[in-house]
C-alpha cells in the first residue's frame, strides 16, 4: 500500500501563488475559496523581508476533523490521505471548525466540506497535484513515501523534517517542511462546536445502550437457535396442533 505525502521547501517559494490558482482551476473551487495557501509574515532575517510558507491540508495522522465528523464522511484513508466522502457528508461544518489549520471550507456548489485531496477527484490518471506541477522552483514535492525511488522519499531521507503543529494541538501532520519553515506553531487548538461536544457525551450512553441491546438480541438469537420456543413449549404445541387439525 502506498503512503502519500507532500513535502515543501519553503525557502524555494517565490510566493507567486500559482499553486493556489492552479488548484482552484483543477478542482473547480468556487470563487473566494481556496484549498491551499501561501502564508506571509514580515521577517527581517530574510533578504526579502518576508517569510513565506506554502501549505494545504496536512493530512494528519491524528486528524481532529475525522473525530469531529458525525457521519464518518471524513476519514483517514489507508494510503495516508484524509478524505471526504461527499456522498456521506451532510455539510454540517463540524470538521471545518475542528481543523486547526483552517484547511477546510464549505463548498457552496456541492454543499459539502471541501479540502485538498491531492487532486484525486479532478485529475486524469497519472497527473500529479496541480500545485506541484505548476510550481516554478519545485518547492512542493509529492509522492509515495514508502517507495524509495520516489522524489519525495529521497528528499525526506536527505533533509531535516519540520512539522507545523502547535503544542496544544498535535495532530501529527504528514505534510512535511524541509529544513526550516516559519512559523512552525501557528495552528491553535480549536474548540469543538457545542453540538459536537454534546454528541461526545451522548455517544457514550448510546454506545452502552446499543451494546446491551445487541447483546440481548444475540442472546435471544442463540437461545432460539438452540432451544426454540416450539421446543420449550413442545407439549402444549403438540396439543394445539392436534386440536387444530381435528
Amino acid at each position: 500500500m502506498s503512503r502519500y505525502v507532500m513535502a515543501i521547501d519553503s525557502g524555494r517559494c517565490i510566493n507567486c501563488k500559482a499553486c493556489i490558482v492552479a488548484c482552484q482551476q483543477r478542482n473547480k473551487v468556487p470563487g473566494g475559496k481556496s484549498r491551499n495557501w501561501v502564508r506571509e509574515i514580515d521577517d527581517e532575517s530574510r533578504k526579502s523581508g518576508v517569510s513565506v510558507q506554502p501549505g494545504a491540508c496536512m493530512h494528519c495522522d491524528h486528524p481532529v476533523c475525522v473525530f469531529a465528523c458525525p457521519t464518518g464522511a471524513t476519514y483517514k484513508g489507508p494510503d495516508g490521505a484524509v478524505e471526504v466522502d461527499k456522498d456521506r457528508c451532510i455539510g454540517c461544518g463540524s470538521c471545518i471548525k475542528a481543523c486547526p489549520y483552517g484547511a477546510r471550507f464549505k463548498n457552496d456548489v456541492t454543499g459539502t466540506a471541501d479540502k485538498c485531496d491531492y487532486c484525486r477527484e479532478h485529475s486524469a490518471p497519472g497527473q500529479i497535484p496541480a500545485c506541484v506541477a505548476v510550481c516554478t522552483t519545485h518547492c512542493r514535492v509529492f509522492g509515495d513515501a514508502d517507495d524509495p525511488d520516489s522524489d519525495v522519499a529521497k528528499i525526506l531521507a536527505s533533509r531535516k523534517k519540520v512539522y507545523v503543529a502547535a503544542k496544544d494541538c498535535d495532530t501529527r501532520p504528514t505534510l512535511t517542511y524541509l529544513d526550516a519553515t516559519t512559523p512552525t506553531d501557528w495552528p491553535q487548538a480549536v474548540d469543538s462546536p457545542t453540538p459536537i461536544k454534546l454528541m461526545e457525551y451522548a455517544s457514550t450512553g448510546v454506545k452502552w445502550t446499543a451494546g446491551a441491546a445487541l447483546a440481548g438480541v444475540i442472546g435471544v438469537f442463540f437461545k432460539q437457535l438452540v432451544l426454540p420456543s416450539d421446543r420449550e413449549h413442545g407439549h402444549t404445541d403438540e396439543h394445539q396442533d392436534k386440536g387444530g387439525n381435528a
Binding site: K28, D87, R88, I90, G91, V109, T110, G111
Partner: peptide, 13 residues
C-alpha cells in the same frame, strides 16, 4: 449502505 447526495444544498454538476 451510504445514500447519495445527503449534503444540504448539493447541486450535482
Amino acid at each position: 449502505l451510504p445514500g447519495k447526495a445527503q449534503a444540504m444544498g448539493q447541486k450535482p454538476g
